[in-house]
Lab assay of single mutants.
Amino acid sequence: MDVFMKGLSKAKEGVVAAAEKTKQGVAEAAGKTKEGVLYVGSKTKEGVVHGVATVAEKTKEQVTNVGGAVVTGVTAVAQKTVEGAGSIAAATGFVKKDQLGKNEEGAPQEGILEDMPVDPDNEAYEMPSEEGYQDYEPEA
Results as ranks from 00 to 15, higher is better:
Thr64Met: 12
Lys45Met: 09
Glu130Pro: 10
Asp2Met: 00
Leu8Val: 03
Asp98Pro: 12
Leu100Trp: 11
Val49Ala: 10
Pro117Glu: 13
Glu57Tyr: 02
Met5Lys: 07
Leu100Ala: 12
Gly86Lys: 06
Ala53Leu: 06
Phe4Trp: 08
Pro117Tyr: 06
Ala76Ile: 05
Ala17Phe: 10
Val82Met: 07
Gln79Phe: 05
Gly93Ala: 01
Met5His: 11
Glu139Leu: 13
Met5Thr: 01
Thr81Phe: 01
Lys45Arg: 09
Ala90Ile: 04
Val55His: 01
Gly25His: 15
Gly73His: 08
Pro138Glu: 11
Glu28Pro: 01
Met127His: 14
Leu8Ser: 00
Glu20Gly: 04
Ala78Lys: 09
Lys34Asn: 03
Leu38Phe: 09
Gly67Tyr: 15
Glu104Leu: 07
Gly68Cys: 14
Phe4Thr: 00
Gly31Phe: 11
Glu105Gly: 09
Val71Ile: 00
Thr59Trp: 15
Leu100Thr: 11
Ala56Ser: 05
Val77Phe: 08
Ile112Trp: 11
Val71Phe: 15
Val37Trp: 13
Asn65Gln: 05
Lys80Tyr: 06
Met1Tyr: 00
Ala90Leu: 14
Ala11Gly: 03
Glu20Pro: 00
Ser9Lys: 13
Asn122Thr: 02
Thr92Pro: 03
Glu123Gly: 12
Gln62Gly: 00
Val16Trp: 06
Ser129Glu: 10
Glu20Ile: 15
Gly93Leu: 04
Val52Ser: 04
Ser87Trp: 02
Asp98Lys: 10
Asp121Met: 07
Ser87Arg: 08
Thr75Arg: 05
Ala78Cys: 15
Pro128Met: 03
Glu130Ala: 11
Ala78His: 12
Thr72Gln: 02
Val66His: 05
Ala107Val: 04
Lys10Gln: 05
Thr64His: 07
Ala85Asp: 07
Glu28Ser: 06
Ala90Asn: 08
Glu139Ala: 11
Ala90Tyr: 14
Gly106Val: 08
Glu131Ile: 14
Glu131Pro: 14
Gln99Asn: 06
Ser42Arg: 05
Gly106Asn: 14
Ala11Pro: 00
Ala85Ser: 05
Glu28Tyr: 07
Asp115Glu: 09
Glu104Ala: 12
Asn103Ala: 13
Asp135Pro: 10
Thr72Gly: 07
Pro120Met: 14
Glu61Pro: 04
Glu130Met: 05
Ala19Gln: 02
Pro117Lys: 04
Val118Ser: 05
Ala29Trp: 10
Val52Met: 02
Gly132Met: 15
Gly7Ala: 04
Ala30Thr: 08
Ala69Glu: 15
Gly132Asp: 14
Ala69Arg: 15
His50Lys: 08
Leu113Tyr: 06
Leu100Tyr: 13
Lys12Glu: 00
Gly47Leu: 15
Val55Arg: 02
Ala140Glu: 11
Gly14Asp: 14
Gln134Asn: 09
Lys97Leu: 00
Tyr125Pro: 12
Glu13Ala: 08
Thr64Gln: 04
Lys80Met: 12
Ala90Lys: 09
Gly36Ile: 14
Thr22Phe: 03
Thr33Tyr: 04
Glu28Gln: 04
Thr44Ile: 05
Gly106Ile: 05
Gln109Asp: 09
Thr54Cys: 14
Gly14Phe: 06
Gln99Ala: 11
Phe4Leu: 09
Leu38Pro: 00
Val48Pro: 09
Asp121Leu: 05
Glu20Thr: 09
Ala30Lys: 05
Leu113Arg: 13
Thr81Met: 11
Ala89Ser: 07
Ser42Asn: 08
Tyr125Ala: 09
Glu13Asp: 01
Ser87Thr: 00
Ala27Phe: 11
Lys60Thr: 06
Glu83Ser: 10
Met1Cys: 00
Asn65Arg: 15
Pro120His: 04
Val40Ser: 00
Leu8Asn: 00
Glu13His: 10
Pro108His: 07
Ala69Cys: 03
Lys96Asp: 10
Lys60Tyr: 15
Lys12Tyr: 13
Thr72Leu: 13
Gln79Asp: 07
Phe94Ala: 04
Glu131Ala: 12
Glu130Thr: 05
Glu123Gln: 06
Gln109Ala: 11
Glu104Val: 03
Glu57Phe: 10
Tyr125Asn: 06
Lys21His: 10
Thr54Ile: 15
Val15Pro: 00
Met5Ala: 02
Asp135Lys: 10
Val52Ala: 13
Ile112Asn: 11
Lys102Thr: 13
Leu38His: 05
Leu113Ser: 12
Pro120Ser: 09
Asn122Ile: 07
Ser42Glu: 08
Gly47Tyr: 09
Glu28Asn: 08
Gly36Tyr: 13
Pro128Asp: 04
Lys80Pro: 03
Asp115Tyr: 05
Ala91Glu: 05
Met127Thr: 06
Leu100Lys: 02
Lys23Arg: 12
Lys60Ala: 10
Lys34Leu: 09
Lys96Pro: 14
Glu20Ala: 07
Glu83Phe: 11
Thr72Asn: 15
Glu57Asn: 07
Gly93Val: 10
Ala78Met: 12
Val16Gly: 05
Asp135Phe: 07
Ile88Tyr: 13
Phe4Met: 14
Glu110Gln: 06
Lys23Leu: 06
Ala11Asp: 00
Lys97Arg: 05
Ser9Val: 02
Asn122Trp: 03
Glu123Trp: 11
Val16Thr: 07
Ala76Asn: 01
Ala29Tyr: 14
Thr59Ser: 06
Gln24Lys: 15
Ala124Ile: 03
Glu61Met: 04
Gly101Pro: 00
Asp119Glu: 12
Gly86Trp: 07
Ser129Pro: 05
Ala78Tyr: 10
Thr72Cys: 02
Gly73Phe: 15
Gly132Phe: 14
Val55Met: 13
Lys60Met: 08
Glu20Arg: 02
Ala124His: 13
Val37Arg: 01
Glu130Val: 02
Thr59Glu: 01
Val71Ala: 10
Glu130Asn: 09
Thr33Glu: 00
Thr72Pro: 01
Ala27Leu: 12
Gly106His: 14
Glu61Lys: 06
Ala27Trp: 11
Val15Phe: 04
Gly31Trp: 12
Gln79Glu: 12
Glu104Asn: 04
Met5Phe: 08
Pro120Gly: 06
Gly67Pro: 04
Ala30Phe: 05
Pro138Ala: 08
Leu38Arg: 12
Gln109Gly: 03
Val15Cys: 04
Glu28Arg: 11
Gln62Asn: 04
Ala69Asn: 07
Val52Glu: 01
Glu110Tyr: 11
Asp98Arg: 07
Ile88Pro: 02
Ala89Phe: 10
Ala85Met: 10
Thr33Ser: 08
Val118Tyr: 05
Glu123His: 03
Gly101Cys: 08
Gly106Ser: 12
Val77Ile: 04
Val48Leu: 06
Val49Lys: 09
Thr75Met: 15
Ala140Asp: 15
Phe4Ile: 03
Glu61Cys: 09
Thr33Trp: 15
Met1Thr: 00
Gly51Pro: 02
Phe94Asp: 06
Thr72Val: 09
Val118Asp: 12
Thr81Asn: 02
Val95His: 13
Gly25Cys: 15
Lys97Ser: 10
Gln62Asp: 07
Glu104Trp: 10
Glu137Leu: 07
Ala11Ser: 00
Val74Leu: 14
Lys60Val: 08
Ala124Trp: 08
Val37Phe: 08
Val52Gln: 01
Thr72Glu: 10
Gly68Arg: 15
Val16Leu: 13
Ser9Gly: 03
Gln99Asp: 05
Gly25Gln: 13
Ala11Lys: 00
Leu38Trp: 12
Glu110Trp: 15
Tyr136Trp: 11
Ala11Trp: 15
Lys10Glu: 02
Lys80Gly: 07
Gln99Phe: 11
Ala53Cys: 02
Phe4Pro: 00
Leu8Gly: 00
Gly7Gln: 10
Gly106Leu: 12
